[in-house]
């Protein structure tokens, strides 16, 4: 546990000292999402209708941008070898690194999401569901992405491979993330919002649990392979 917190705090400190890395994902998210109203024209109903999809797709791409640096720096400077040799279990270390990644990319995205939602004229019920869906969904994005990040470590131009590996695996999160908000927007009675969105949110939770289980195992195996 101490080793886990040690890795998390080191990665957070590294991210805070390299602010460009930290702000890149969230700035990308905000700027890209802001382009759509300009491109589609100022029609409030249309914007509100497509907002869930745009927010999720841009969030997903923002996470994608940040994935390469998750393990690459450690791989290149030899830290990874030392991490594997250290007494910390590698599975725990992978989880710690993913948590740090989520805190520096997923969490800022969640904090920025209400701003984008306002821009798209989303009502407050839908916004609440959006936040819940993102809290459940963005950790899965980091977890699934981490597998791809570890698998591409030895490859030349691994950064190009990551989207190919990851985007198909992100589709379920995207579908249920958008589905939850759509269900909330389409519910007629105020009380039915949560009930309508519930199945989607539960599925997002299921994806999170499965990836929480698989990522440490697959990630650790891929890391061991990468230094051989």
């Amino acid at each position: 546990m101490k080793a886990f917190l040690n890795i998390v705090s080191r990665d957070l400190r590294l991210a805070l000292r390299q602010k460009s890395d930290l702000t890149m994902a969230v700035l990308f998210f905000i700027l890209t999402a802001m382009l759509f109203p300009f491109g589609l024209g100022p029609e409030p109903n249309l914007l509100a209708r497509i907002a869930p999809g745009i927010i999720w797709v841009t969030a997903l791409l923002a996470v994608l941008l940040s994935l390469e640096r998750l393990f690459l720096a450690d791989y290149e400077d030899g830290s990874l070898e030392q991490l594997i040799l250290s007494s910390t279990s590698l599975e725990v270390a992978v989880l710690a690194k993913v948590l740090a990644h989520w805190l520096t990319t997923g969490l800022p995205l969640i904090l920025a999401a209400p701003l984008i939602a306002l821009l798209f004229n989303m009502d407050s019920d839908a916004m609440t569901i959006l936040l819940i869906a993102m809290i459940l969904g963005t950790p899965s994005l980091s977890l699934i992405g981490a597998i791809a990040a570890t698998l591409t470590l030895g490859a030349r131009r691994g950064g190009v491979l990551i989207p190919l590996l990851v985007l198909p695996l992100y589709i379920p999160t995207l579908i249920f993330g958008v589905g939850a908000i759509d269900a909330a927007m389409n519910s007629l009675e105020a009380g039915a919002v949560i009930a309508n969105a519930r199945p989607h949110l539960l599925l997002l939770g299921a994806i999170l649990l499965v990836s929480l289980l698989i990522t440490p195992l697959a990630g650790a195996a891929a890391l061991r392979q990468s230094v051989e």
Binding site: A3, N6, R10, R13, L14, R17, Q18, A73, E76, D77, G78, S79, E81, Q82, L85, S86, S87
Partner: peptide
């Protein structure tokens, strides 16, 4: 593995951390 120190070609130093922070991290 808990009884060995391995020092390879690469230094495993994080450029944005100070000398002491780097050492503290690896020694736990």
């Amino acid at each position: 593995q808990s009884h060995i120190h391995y020092i390879g070609h690469r230094n495993a130093i994080k450029p944005v951390l100070t000398v002491l922070e780097n050492l503290a991290y690896w020694s736990g």
